[in-house]
Amino acid sequence: MRPTNSRTPHVLALCLATLMGCSGTSEEALQQTSTLSGIAMADSVCSLCHGLTGESVSPMFPKLAGQQNEYLQLQLTDFKNHGRSAATDSRYMGGLSHLTKTQIAELADYFASQRAMQADTGTSDARGEVIFRQGLPERGVPPCSACHGTDGGGNGVIPRVAGQHASYMSQQIMVLQQTGQRPNGAPMLPVDHALSQADAESVARYMAALRTKQ
């Protein structure tokens, strides 16, 4: 289902406030978001950063197209409860504390149902392929494919990584080395701590070039 293109002045003001970290948004304005459907939010709010179908253009913002439904719900719940404390998370998603459970479910359903995020057309990374397929046994790093799937499609609360922005993924690997900023990312701590910045960038480039089924 394709959302409408209507954007009320209130919603546009709220979008701008959200992008600025909601520093000047009134409590009343934030509470009014609870009246919007998930599809209306995807159209009028989320699309400004993530694209109408979740295929974001800017690597600053992750692609959501075809992302795992359970993973999306988990992350939206974390944003609602301020469970993700990295600086960029707080800056761009700090205004979501008034999301309802229904909105979270509807947003997850909407983005998960879109065509899977499209692979980067750049050259694949040989070092990254080794890390993704074989891991780094000498450092105790298992292959990424063991959890994210051989095609990078993810499963349940394990996110789709195939086709995601490379720079976003490498930055998240570094964030996940600090589990205080991403408590639900604790299972990644042993893996990420053993990856250097160069390794993180290599495997991120490889995953960005992966193509996966919906």
Rank of each mutant, 00 (worst) to 15 (best):
A209E: 08
P143L: 07
Q134R: 09
G152W: 04
G140R: 03
G163F: 01
G153T: 01
A186D: 02
T53V: 10
E70H: 09
A208D: 05
L64C: 11
L30C: 08
V141Y: 00
N81E: 11
V45Y: 03
Q68G: 01
R115M: 02
A119N: 01
T102C: 01
T4D: 15
C144F: 03
M188H: 04
Q32R: 04
C144I: 00
T150S: 10
R115E: 10
P62A: 00
S90V: 15
H10T: 13
G54S: 06
Y71W: 15
G185R: 11
G140H: 05
A108S: 10
M174V: 13
T100F: 07
L52R: 07
P9V: 06
P142I: 13
V57E: 09
H98Y: 14
G95V: 01
S47E: 00
C147D: 03
S202E: 11
Q172D: 07
A194Q: 13
K63C: 06
D151C: 02
R139C: 05
E106F: 09
T179W: 00
L96R: 03
Y110H: 05
D125W: 05
T18N: 10
A208H: 11
L76C: 05
R139I: 06
D89V: 00
G152L: 02
I39T: 12
T77N: 15
K101T: 13
S113P: 02
L176R: 06
C144R: 02
S124Q: 12
G38M: 02
C147Q: 04
D199P: 03
K63A: 11
T121K: 11
S170V: 08
L64N: 08
L19K: 10
R115F: 06
Q164D: 04
L48Y: 13
L64A: 10
G24V: 04
Q177F: 02
I131H: 08
L74Q: 15
G135I: 00
G154V: 01
L12F: 08
F111E: 02
A87H: 06
K101E: 15
G140C: 01
S167E: 14
R133F: 01
Q177C: 01
G38V: 08
M60C: 09
V157P: 02
L19R: 11
N69R: 15
L189R: 08
S23A: 13
P143K: 02
E106I: 06
S167D: 14
G180H: 12
D109F: 12
Y206W: 07
S167P: 04
G24E: 11
G24K: 12
Q171L: 13
A40I: 13
P3H: 06
R182I: 07
T88Q: 15
L74F: 08
A13Y: 10
A146C: 05
H82T: 10
G51A: 02
D151W: 02
Y92V: 15
C147T: 09
E55C: 06
E129P: 00
H82S: 10
L195D: 09
A112K: 02
S196N: 04
A119L: 08
